Amino acid sequence: MTVWCGDTPLILASQSRTRRLLLANAGIDVEARPAEIDERAMQAAAGITAPSDIAALLAREKALAVSARWPGRHVLGADQTLALGDRLFNKPDGRVGAFEQLRALAGGSHQLHSAVAVAYDRMVVFEHVAVASMTMRPLSEIAVAAYLDAAGDAVAASVGGYQLEGLGVHLFERIDGDHFTILGLPLLPLLGFLRSRRLLVF
Rank of each mutant, 00 (worst) to 15 (best):
N90Q: 06
F172N: 12
A68F: 01
I142W: 13
G168V: 02
M1A: 07
R17S: 07
V169A: 13
L199M: 12
N90T: 00
V116W: 00
Q15R: 12
N90F: 07
A56I: 00
V116D: 05
I48G: 07
G184T: 06
L190C: 12
G177Q: 03
F202V: 11
H179Q: 08
R198K: 08
L190T: 05
R122Y: 02
A151T: 09
V144C: 03
R33Y: 11
F180T: 14
M42A: 06
S133W: 02
H128E: 13
R60C: 11
D178A: 04
S67W: 12
W4F: 08
R197K: 15
A157I: 03
I11L: 10
A151N: 10
S114E: 02
I142V: 14
V169Q: 15
Q111C: 07
L183V: 04
G152M: 05
L102V: 00
I37H: 06
E127R: 13
G27L: 00
P34M: 10
A98T: 03
S196V: 01
S52W: 11
G160D: 01
Q163C: 11
L190Q: 08
R137N: 07
A13K: 13
Q15K: 14
A32R: 03
N90R: 02
D79I: 04
F89D: 01
A151K: 04
R174P: 01
Q80D: 04
R197Y: 11
Q163Y: 08
L139Q: 14
A65Y: 07
V75H: 14
P51D: 05
R17A: 06
G192Y: 10
H113D: 05
Q43N: 05
L82R: 07
A56T: 13
H74W: 15
R73G: 10
L167K: 14
P51K: 03
F172V: 06
A65E: 13
Q43F: 09
P186M: 05
G77W: 09
R137I: 05
A143N: 10
M136H: 12
L185T: 02
V3N: 07
L188R: 13
R87W: 01
I37V: 11
E39L: 09
A50R: 15
G108W: 10
L84R: 06
I54Y: 09
T49S: 15
L10N: 09
T8A: 15
Y162R: 06
Y162M: 04
V125Y: 08
L171T: 10
G184I: 01
A98G: 10
I28L: 09
Y162I: 00
M1D: 03
I182L: 04
R60D: 13
A106F: 05
L200W: 08
E165C: 07
A151D: 12
L185H: 05
L139R: 14
A119M: 11
A117C: 04
T81G: 03
G77K: 14
E127G: 13
R197Q: 15
A98F: 02
A104W: 03
E100C: 01
L82P: 00
L84Q: 06
R40E: 13
E141M: 03
V125G: 07
A98W: 04
E100I: 00
L194G: 08
